[in-house]
Nucleic acid binder design. Structure first.
Lengths: 217, 217
DNA sequence: CGGGGGCTTGAGGCCACTCAACGATAGTGG
DNA sequence: CCACTATCGTTGAGTGGCCTCAAGCCCCCG
């Protein structure tokens, strides 16, 4: 029943869920925390509107964003009793919340539910595995190319996409500095691989997917 | 029933499993491939003897090792129908194999089985999340310190541990070069934090866990 | 005893980082 | 309505941490 919820247009399935578990909705202003590392993990979340970053910090403030959660994505799954991440709203965001408790309850009777949880956890794991390759072995330009392809795939609608996150967020996702991210994006622009829409540097059109994919080895 | 199999001393539980699914054992010589990326994922594996590396490659040969699987570890879980990485025996290795098919069959009747698969997949995910922080944000010295603490935790028995993997493997796990790994390990030696046993640089005693943990922020 | 693999160590180079300045935009309060 | 400020992004100059290239040692194994 939760299966496919991570795909944007499967929100319909959510209706079926509501008859069985407690689903609530909650709004989070730009920049506010949804949950913190080491807090008890009482809920599972789905993005209805907006975007979320989840990250870990080192003691001196260095930050690694593990994933961006966009509309339709389910997150808060990989956690045990306690969250392993901090999650924050990147922009004004609405989330659907499901109590873990009630999910457990259903899961005991309905094997399909656990199976769906397993499927979603697997896809989180696969994303993490791909990201390890990026962080460990790709150059700055390759990282940015991979990132843009991911965002193009996940949020392009009318031939372009609008990034909800800042250059700093992108940098902390890619293991770079914000200056490097800026430089590499502009190098792709100079090569004619992408274009900016209007004055806003967050709206991007990918002109040449193939060359972008070749940079992303 | 599979729960806890990832912990070294839970091999006992494996006996209970054998009555229900087809479990076979297989040996792999040092350096041989267990499965390749994009091959069909027909089995789930558990290390009985030896050690395994699983990795991804870029087209030009750059390699990122995502995890080392040691005695007791279960792997091959995060995969869908097709493997997402290559697995190789680091040393001569014996594995227990369970057909995915028969696992699926049991899982349909026994919700506990899926639950255990979910738990193990989660712990793989958490390892990957920690590793993203390492690859994205830690310095060379911090990476090596984190690695040594992990190995100390996972394979110390008589006050020391013997690394099954080469410097090159460690480097590809930590996103460094083998030369850098060598230099950083020796810096820890020079600081009196660790010692080598006999002539073999793979047998290590950690003398000062606390200082090692402080380097690993 | 010759050859190869694994590890160490040194010298030099480069890619991404640091530090800094600047422009543009949005939100705020007088 | 307009400073004022904060945030965000870009761009340049210089630095440094890790990589590259290279040589040499040790051990194992044929």
């Amino acid at each position: 029943m939760f299966a496919g919820l991570s795909r944007p247009n499967s929100l319909t399935k959510f209706a079926a869920l509501q008859a069985r578990v407690t689903v609530s909705e909650h709004s989070y202003g730009k920049g506010t925390e949804i949950f913190g590392e080491d807090e008890p993990a009482d809920y599972v979340y789905q993005v209805a509107v907006g975007a979320v970053r989840s990250y870990k910090l080192l003691t001196d403030g260095r930050r690694q964003i593990g994933a961006f959660h966009l509309v339709g994505d389910v997150f808060g799954l990989g956690n045990a009793a306690v969250h392993r991440f901090t999650a924050e709203a990147i922009v004004d965001t609405k989330l659907h919340l499901v109590r873990r408790e009630s999910l457990e309850l259903i899961a005991q009777k309905n094997a399909v539910v656990i199976r769906d949880l397993l499927t979603m956890t697997r896809s989180n794991l696969q994303h993490a595995e791909d990201h390890m390759l990026l962080l460990g072995r790709k150059t700055a330009l390759e990282r940015v190319a991979t990132f843009l392809l991911e965002m193009d795939r996940r949020l392009t609608t009318a031939g372009f996409f609008a990034l909800p996150m800042s250059r700093r967020d992108i940098a902390d996702y890619l293991g770079l500095t914000l200056e490097t991210v800026s430089r590499e994006i502009h190098q792709l622009y100079d090569r004619g691989i992408l274009e900016f829409l209007s004055e806003n540097q967050r709206q991007i059109v990918v002109l040449d997917h193939e060359r972008l994919a070749n940079l992303d080895l």
